[in-house]
Design a protein around this nucleic acid. Structure first.
Lengths: 155, 155
DNA sequence: TGTGAAAGATTTCGAAA
DNA sequence: TTTCGAAATCTTTCACA
């Protein structure tokens, strides 16, 4: 990925609705050239999609938490992500190194909803949970600074 | 926030570039009515912005980690988020309940870059760190399911 | 890969209900 | 808060360098 593509990706990471016209102006390319590059980045999977960023308080999901899970039966097949995918309160699932096997990020409406969710997680995936409640979020979803040589792999 | 707004927010959370024309069709409103609602949701802050979702491997930041931090001097002013804001590798900063005070989500290019980042975090905020490395991410950034009564507060 | 141009969609905004 | 309509912009594709 070259400089121009990195610039395009950075701009779209900051403003996912930026127009091709604006991208063209910012990059010094023609509109069609930018268009072509964006399509290529999408097809390659570098740009995975676009999303609106929400205010979760206003959206009725004011309680965020990180839930670390550990299998109760370490011998059982590890398909926790699949078993939990139907729970829409789970925004993300990361497999992690360390004592526990996954960290889930969850968003719920209330402490009661969190309690119910934890029960669902435990029974659906046969895991124990350890929950860290988020009190406030100074910042989130910041766009990264793309460095010099992101993925020099051949197509 | 009423049903239609929730529908609009949900649709934009899934596809941040959906056109007003499509939103209108999905909601049964006219294009301008949808347009006005979106603008109002943006002004109210319910829609906080739009972002492209990246493939961080392809973007050259293949290493994700959660860094929990704890102040070395518990009596010092707690301004860690401000002191860390300049580090662009930090994607998010959550104040949390529990033994540690913040959880940071970071994205870096390599283990070496992570080591350097941890040093910067420790010196910039005078904290100790505990790092959990992400091995893989089954899913992330899933759109929430907005419930019946998200924020019934008066304007 | 790049460019410019043209056709077709979309966005935006004022006025009316 | 909604709708309609028209002007301004944007998207998309094409032929060609």
């Amino acid at each position: 990925m070259e400089e121009i593509d990195r610039r395009i990706v950075t701009l779209l990471a900051k403003d996912g609705r930026m127009s091709f016209t604006d991208l063209a102006r910012e990059t010094g390319l023609s509109v069609s050239a930018v268009h072509q590059r964006v399509r290529r980045l999408e097809k390659r999977g570098v740009l995975r999609g676009y999303a609106a960023l929400l205010d979760y308080d206003a959206a009725g999901l004011p309680l965020t938490a990180f839930v670390s899970i550990k299998p109760i039966d370490p011998a059982a097949a590890d398909d926790a992500p699949d078993r939990l995918a139907h729970l829409s309160a789970i925004e993300a699932c990361h497999s992690v190194a360390g004592d526990e096997s996954y960290i889930l990020k969850v968003r719920v409406a209330s402490p009661l909803a969190l309690e119910e969710l934890l029960n669902q997680i435990r029974t659906a995936a046969n895991v124990s949970t350890r929950t860290t409640v988020v009190l406030s979020t100074p910042y989130e979803h910041r766009a990264p600074e793309l460095a010099d040589k992101p993925s020099e792999e051949p197509a």
